[in-house]
Design a protein around this nucleic acid. Structure first.
Lengths: 239, 239
DNA sequence: TAGTGGTCTAGACCACAGA
DNA sequence: CTGTGGTCTAGACCACTAA
């Protein structure tokens, strides 16, 4: 029974948090149909309108899909809706490029200054670091340097497969991803990047700096990428 | 008195359209306080909740600002909220760059193939075309080629000042701007661009291709830009 | 036909801003 | 204090889907 008596937080927000937790922990599995609005309202002891507001929030956060006459369903982190959320590089034909991922190096240790700054870590915190290259049609086009807080992803470096999206990876650790910011600049390709991508050292290349947050605002992943945009473009949506 | 009897469109959507028209035509001027939810509900013969939904839509479209205990106010097209909506180039310090605009050339005539394609024009339609350069701290950093449907902006080419934002310009013609898409690529600077920006011909440069829509979905403006990103970056928000 | 979410109503109380 | 928007209630009817 949710109430506002013991919290300044609105009831529909509290309810959203509880429902999100059920999704994050896997209590509600991907593809599962949720109880109807009316049933959820009864369970939480709130009015149907309030339950509806909580569900609408989770739909906007891409965690649920609702269809009139059908029901409310949990989106898989591997669904296009969630996995391709941050994939903004497309072919000149307009198709999203995901590409295969080849991991080059995995390491873990005390966070460096850049990582502490971007991931809001303290000086004693550690970070996982993954370096990989993305291939499209077998040809490498992007080198990535991924950093994640070790506290959020304990034992991450022991994994074998990093090919999945950050949405899937995070959810395995009970974290739901939310918004992200990306910064784009043009810069000269460093030697190590140029070698992997088959470019000349210093060739102009797109640099992408992306920070992904959890739905509660905590920084979850910082990704620094060098991309060769030949026959491709970066698509931005200005709501 | 709005009703659903004569339209499949939801009442709150119909009401949004009417309110948006009042803003577009200037019947409600920027800075004006709207009647309260309850008064608007009475005027339109709907329940307060329905009126509220219409107002929420317009707030999401950046046309209104609502503040509890204060009221609902019309946003000026020149307000940061609306004018800087599409300004994604920032200084390395993170401040939005607007810059001064210097118009190089204004012309009007039958739309070329690219304009017809991007602005959804028919073969007999005309387009206004404006070429200008943007300066930051007195230094040119971006060349723009702007195209707009002549039918939407009659007499545009007779104007003197194009320095204002597309939101302001469009509203002078009774058009409210909504979403936009942008495509970014890296390419060699053409001679004319390089000369204006003080770069070598063929130097790598950011190309931005942006299409702005009206809130009803019609294409309103197509902008092709070449930008020198030195000491700057492009900021994208991945909601 | 039963059950779902989408819309809509007509109220209530609360938090907040300003006179 | 008054009036605003934010939240919340407890219903109603409708459009849609699938069995």
């Amino acid at each position: 029974m949710l109430t506002r008596r013991f919290s300044t937080r609105a009831i529909y927000q509290q309810m959203r948090d509880v429902l999100a937790a059920r999704i994050a922990t896997g209590e509600w599995k991907p593809g599962t149909a949720l109880p109807s609005e009316a049933d959820l309202a009864r369970e939480f002891g709130v009015s149907p309108g309030t339950a509806r507001k909580a569900l609408k929030l989770l739909e906007a956060e891409r965690l649920l899909t609702r269809r009139q006459g059908h029901g409310t369903f949990v989106n898989a982190p591997s669904s296009d809706e969630r996995a391709l959320r941050y994939s903004n590089i497309r072919t000149s034909g307009g198709e999203r490029i995901v590409g295969e991922v080849k991991v080059l190096k995995v390491s873990e240790g005390p966070a460096n200054e850049a990582q502490r700054d971007r991931l809001q870590l303290r000086s004693e915190d550690c970070a996982c670091q993954i370096r990989c290259v993305r291939l499209f049609n077998g040809k490498p086009f992007m080198v990535e340097e991924i950093s994640m807080p070790s506290t959020l992803f304990p034992g991450l470096t022991e994994r074998e497969d990093f090919g999945c999206s950050i949405a899937s990876l995070a959810q395995e650790f009970g974290v739901l991803v939310g918004g992200a910011e990306e910064r784009l600049t043009i810069g000269p390709a460093p030697r190590d990047v140029a070698e992997v991508l088959g470019l000349e050292v210093g060739a102009p290349i797109l640099m992408l700096d992306r920070l992904v947050h959890a739905i509660d605002g905590r920084p979850v992943e910082w990704r620094l990428r060098h991309a060769d945009l030949a026959d491709k473009y970066y698509a931005a949506n200005l709501g």
